[in-house]
Structures are given as C-alpha cells and as structure tokens.
C-alpha cells in the first residue's frame, strides 16, 4: 500500500474543502472494506484518504412519517437489525445482512455498498425497488438523484470528484410487500451470482436485479406487463419469460449468462407465486 495523507473532517463543509483542495486525488474512507483491499492490491493509490466517519449526523437512520433516510455512515448491520427496517422493509434488512460476514457488516455501510456501484450490490435491488433517492452534497448544496439514474456502469456513478453522498432515502410505503432473493455459490459470505427484489404495492410491481447487467437494474418492461394484472400461473410464466429476456447478464467464473438469465426467471416465479 502506498502512503497517503489521512484526513478526518468533522463537517461536510470541511470535507468538501478537502475534496476541492486535492483535485480528485481523494478517496473517501467510509467502512473501508472495499477501499483498503483496493489500495493494498494497488488498484487505488490516492494522495489523500478522507475518513468521513466523524462527520456528525451521518450515522443515523431517520424515520419520518413519510420518508426513511439512511445516513452515509450507517453500518450494514445497523441497517439490517433496525427494528423499523426489519418490520416494514424486511427485504431491505435481509439484503443488508446478506453482504459479507458479520465482521464486514460491522464496518461496511449501505451507502458504501451503493457508491461502489458493483453490478451485484446486494442493497441496491431493494432500494431500486423502493424508488430510493441518493442525496449528494456539493458546491451547490444538497441535490437529489434517483438511484436508478445514479449508476452509470460497472463501478461508475454520476458522482463527481467534488461531491459526497450524504445518504439515501425512500418514501414510506406501508402497503409494499417485497421479497429479496440472493443466489450464491455458498450461502454465507459470498457474492451474489444473481440477486433480486420483487415488490408489490397495490396492483403495481417493481422488479430489480443484480449481477445481470453492468449495474443493478429495474426490469421496467416486465413491471409494465404485470401492472394491474391479476396473478395467475400463466401471467407469472409470461412475466418470467419477459424478465429473462430483459436482463443482459454476462458469463464469468461464478456462472454463465444462460444460468443467470434462467435464475432471474426462477427468482421472479418464486416471489410472485407467494402472492398467488
């Protein structure tokens, strides 16, 4: 690992100044479970490592009547074990607890999981299904970007060098039912071969998948097909076919493209069948 300057700002403003003063050579250290491995392997050699964990207020899960906001430094374990999240949004809790090991989740954050923009980010699929918004702090203050527009490509987001994600929020939807599914080679402490969240709210459906495209994705065509329909065996089969066609997975050492496609169908079929 190459040496670097270690800075620990105590306000967003200070953090922003550090970003500006170092012209893109800053790596934000949150949980660090990804960054430290990347630095060690030489994939990342920043001049400055900026630890944001001492910025007050970012470590809260704020539950308002109509919205829930997850702060930037909220740990995956704290998210997954939060009573409100567990009760009302169990699929989000499950997704959070499906990342890494207990030790990793004691360090890794939900926002870090999102900002890494891995195609198979486990917490991305429930948050995509919840139509979550990403809150970004920059020179013009706070701006909000829908999560679906936040991801650009593998490990690429719309985030600019002089911006910090302060949190992610979603509108409370007491009626929403969701099912998170993760398929992996090994049940515990593994990356998703594929993962998905299937959500029903009223007569609408929202479907999101990970590890089937360069970014986590929503399956809008399949959602549109299901919208307003009464679920029957035939409808489900049709939806599964559509979903399998809508994803664009690749073959890699974890699974083939064909297997991933087929599993998208299986996950959707199993989820929808719960609501038959």
């Amino acid at each position: 690992m190459k040496t670097f300057e270690y800075l620990r700002p105590t306000s967003l403003k200070e953090a922003l100044d550090i970003l500006k003063n170092h012209d893109g050579n800053v790596s934000i250290l949150n949980g660090g479970t990804d960054l430290i491995v990347r630095m060690r392997e030489g994939h990342s050699s920043p001049e400055v490592v900026m630890d944001i964990k001492k910025i007050p207020g970012l470590d809260q899960i704020q539950v308002d009547e109509d919205r829930i906001t997850i702060g930037a430094t909220v740990l995956l374990n704290d998210l997954g074990l939060n009573e409100v999240i567990k009760t009302r949004y169990p699929y989000l809790a499950q997704a959070a607890l499906s990342v890494g090991s207990k030790q990793v989740r004691n360090r890794a954050t939900c926002i870090g999981n999102i900002c890494n923009a891995s195609p198979l980010a486990d917490t991305a699929t429930p948050l995509l299904a919840l139509n979550a918004d990403v809150h970004i702090y920059g020179e013009e203050g706070i701006k909000t970007v829908p999560l679906k527009d936040f991801f650009v490509f593998v490990r690429k987001t719309v985030l600019k060098p002089n911006e910090i994600v302060t949190g992610i929020s979603f509108k409370q939807d007491p009626e929403a039912l969701g099912i998170f599914t993760k398929m992996s080679r090994r049940k515990e402490v593994d990356l998703s071969t594929v993962c998905s969240t299937v959500m029903r709210t009223g007569t609408e459906y929202r479907i999101s998948c990970g590890a089937v495209a360069p970014t986590p994705v929503r399956l809008f065509k399949t959602e549109a097909f299901l919208s307003g329909k009464t679920l029957t065996g035939e409808v489900i089969e049709e939806a599964c076919k559509l979903a399998e066609g809508e994803v664009v997975p690749i073959s890699d050492i974890r699974a083939s493209e064909a297997y991933r496609r087929e599993m998208v169908g299986v996950m959707l079929r199993r989820a929808l069948s719960e609501w038959l």
């Binding site: 080679r185 090994r186 049940k187 515990e188 050492i253």
Partner: peptide
C-alpha cells in the same frame, strides 16, 4: 464448489472471493 479455475495457465480465482471453502453454515 472448490475448483482452482485455470485458463491458459492462469488461475482465475486466486482469492477467497472466488475460491470458496465451506463455512460453519455449510
């Protein structure tokens, strides 16, 4: 699940990320 994956002599999975051994849960 264990296999040292080789392609043209290159080990494709030289880490615990992609070479899985059983955990207590298995």
């Amino acid at each position: 699940f264990e296999e040292l994956m080789l392609k043209e002599g290159k080990v494709l999975n030289p880490s615990f990320v992609d070479y899985k051994i059983p955990t207590a849960d298995d």
